[in-house]
Amino acid sequence: MKIIKNHYLFLSLLCLTLIIAFLYIDKGVTWQKELDNSSPELRNNIHFKLGTELKQSVNLDQNDIYIALINNEHISQNEWQYNKTFEVMKSKERNWSAPNNETIFNEIVERKLIVDKAKQTGLYPNKDEIDKFIKEQKILMKSNQDIQSLLNGWMITEAEYINFMQEIWADSIAIEKWYDNIIIPQINTTLLEDLNAYEEEYTRITNLELSKLKDNAKIIITDEGNDLGILYK
């Protein structure tokens, strides 16, 4: 009886060892893949592919179709398609599970709610700030291969890309200002010594402020949004 028990113990230990060994090998393979993923050719191809997908999904000639109204802001069909294509393709390239419509839509809604608040409180960037950002982008774009590959795949010019992106960039500047002016000042500076505690507090305050914005929000999905299967809870 004792011998049988010992056999079971031995087999259990053997199985455990094999499982652990398998996990290590699996991780090793993943790591090796990451190293291979560093080639410039692969990087160019991936950005080119994103461009070709954006060409299919975003119609730059039709910027006045809206899929949702968020307080005084709107989400255009092109902005939705840009976000969706970016996130879905990114997940596909990285072998992640793709985010669903609801997750992507929620992220855009949160951005629009902050932008709406930023406009009310004078945090939205003025023309000079936006022009300065665009000027910096123009310089960066000249020497960056990512954007050149994207534009080649999308088959659009730098000017067309800037024209499409400038509202998204202006929103990003406003969101950054909102964090700097609304969230950061609420965090106790002593927490800077402990990054985990800082991160927890940062997330807590952000969620609190976002939930305040959501509570008073007026969100309407248009017919075009409904046709695309967009839902908001």
């Binding site: 950005h47 976000n83 970016f86 996130e87 951005r111 982008q137 960066l140 774009m141 960056n144 990512d146 954007i147 994207l150 992106m165 998204i168 960039w169 929103d171 990003s172």
Partner: peptide, 12 residues
């Protein structure tokens, strides 16, 4: 190093 981002264009 600089790379393409979704909401910020090229970012450092």
């Amino acid at each position: 190093c600089e790379a393409l981002t979704k909401n910020w264009g090229i970012r450092n």
